[in-house]
Nucleic acid binder design. Structure first.
Length: 468
RNA sequence: GCCCCCAUCGUCUAGUGGCCUAGGACACCACCCUUUCAAGGUGGCGGCACGGGUUCGAAUCCCGUUGGGGGUGCCA
């Protein structure tokens, strides 16, 4: 437990899903804690009653584990729950009140707005600073913001100055006596001896207030680092409403954790050298906050998908087969899949694509896609080729090479190359015009099934009505 | 409105005063390979927002403009 290294923290509030931006922030903290021999402290900020469900915490822990941040790791500490420390937050607030660093105010939000409107200056104007109010129902405790400048030293942004003239006396305790985020956050960070606060840029405007609180409470502020936010194509902060932000969703759609982690780390930062696909161990060694970019980064699903495809192809064949097993129906014959797995591995970018690519190998009959069929059958020789192939395939040797040679020769007799000749056979047998290499698939399917499908297709008219 | 942050190809980035005729990746295009589709290979397209300085020399330093973003709750 006792560790003299730096202490980082990740402090999400439970929301029911894990935001990809949060994942990147967690990864930054994790990389640093691991490399520096420090700690990664997980604190669930559950003080908002509206956001408080036990299963949401489980979701956070599962998501972290998926991206390699394990509660089993010695560098991991927690989770702590902010709601359990409410009495410490209140005690700190009372200390501030007693020493005159905070004061009570009985103005309602409406009254504050009216005063602001009347004076033309937005925000709270410090009306109750010297009214000597004590605690009472509906009285909020406000921090007496000292005049002057607050200089925030930020590892990614350098020195940022804030003039107190623009920092209002913010609320510490609500009218019902419960602590606010700014206070709770600081008190917890102090109690947990956090040395480095690495979080998203949206918290930068909070930082002078929190730093004042650290100082008012008699402690040295931590090292701050505000990393740029992740944005969508409209350059707006990624939001649950507009964008696909849930880590769980990407996971369910067949994205690999390694690919996700690697991609996330290239947003706002890049490993040295000419390749971005690098193992975590290398990232962990190389990552520096000082090298993080200052501008928001677009979360590009297309690039993520490209990374994912690369990671899928990097898997040793047997690893791919094992991984794929979780993504195909349980009743599918694993031996059959294994025979074509290498053909699939180079053709998918996400794990969910696997099943749809080879489903025709596992069904008794095949649904023919009308568009594919109609297009293929437009070729004048298509029907004749299919018909002849059905005859040749009754008697030829049943292996990939023979199947290919026979169709190639047959095609020549009709004046077409193999590329053209295979088309009607492909649609007839697989139902689609694209898919894994045909002859391998035929071999695996077996003569009986292939012939049955070809004959059934021969019964079809040249033009099929579209499904819908 | 006010406060703060930011600005290299469409996107993610390398670059920290001369190695830059600005490098890589994704996307896109072409060609090669090829049984469809991929994968792979080769090549191409494409950028230092603008204007002033500083300097022998600026993508790199300073100022301004413009353009983005974040914040502005008795949410976190």
């Amino acid at each position: 437990m006792s560790s003299s290294g730096p202490r980082f923290r990740f402090a999400p509030s439970p929301t029911g899903y894990f935001h990809v931006g949060g994942a990147r922030t967690a990864l930054y903290n994790w990389a640093l804690a691991k490399r520096l021999g420090g700690r990664f402290v997980l604190r669930i900020e559950d003080t908002d009653e509206a956001r408080n469900r036990p299963e949401w915490t489980t979701g956070i822990i599962d998501a972290l584990a998926w991206i390699g941040i394990s509660t089993e790791d010695p560098a991991f500490e927690g989770p702590y729950f902010q709601s359990e420390y409410a009495s410490a937050h209140i005690a700190a607030a009372e200390r501030l009140y007693e020493s005159g660093l905070a004061y009570y105010c009985d103005l309602t939000s409406e009254q504050i707005q009216e005063r602001a409107k009347a004076s033309g200056t937005p925000g709270y104007d410090g009306y109750s600073r010297d009214r000597g109010l004590g605690p009472g129902p509906g009285h909020v405790l406000r921090f007496r913001v000292p005049s002057g400048q607050t200089v925030v030293n930020d590892l990614v942004r350098g020195t940022v100055e804030f003039d107190s003239a623009h920092v209002e006396d913010f609320v510490l305790l609500r009218g019902n006596g419960t602590p606010m985020f700014l206070l709770a956050n600081v008190v917890d960070d102090m109690a947990m001896q956090i040395t480095h606060v690495v979080r998203a840029e949206e918290h930068l405007p909070n930082t002078p207030k929190q730093q004042m609180l650290w100082e008012a409470l008699g402690a040295d502020p931590p090292v701050w680092a505000h990393v740029p936010v992740l944005v969508n194509e409209q350059r707006k902060k990624l939001s649950k409403r507009r964008d696909k932000v849930a880590l769980e969703q990407y996971r369910a759609e067949g994205y690999l954790a390694d690919a996700m982690v690697n991609y996330l780390m290239t947003l706002g930062w890049a490993p040295s050298g000419d390749t971005e696909i690098v193992p975590w161990a290398q990232i962990q060694e190389a990552f520096r906050l000082e090298d993080v970019n200052h501008a928001p980064a677009f979360f590009d699903v297309k690039k993520l998908t490209a990374f994912n495809g690369d990671y899928i192809r990097m898997m040793p064949p047997e690893v791919f087969v094992a991984a794929a097993s979780d993504w195909i129906p349980a009743e599918w014959d694993r031996d059959v899949f294994t025979r074509v797995s290498d053909l699939v591995q180079t053709r998918v970018a996400t794990m969910t694509e696997i099943a749809t690519m080879v489903d025709f190998l596992f069904t008794d009959t095949v649904d023919i896609d009308p568009a594919s069929w109609n297009k293929t059958m437009k070729a004048s020789e298509a029907r004749a080729v299919l018909s002849d192939a059905a005859k040749v395939y009754e008697i030829c040797q049943w292996d990939t090479a023979s199947l290919k040679n026979e169709l190639e020769m047959l095609g020549e007799s009709h004046g077409v190359k193999l590329g053209k000749a295979q088309a009607p056979v492909r649609v007839a047998v697989t139902g689609r015009s694209v898919g894994p290499p045909l002859f391998e698939s035929l071999e695996v399917l077996g003569r009986e099934a292939v012939l049955a499908r070809m004959r059934a297709a021969l019964e079809l008219p040249d033009s099929l009505a579209a499904d819908e």
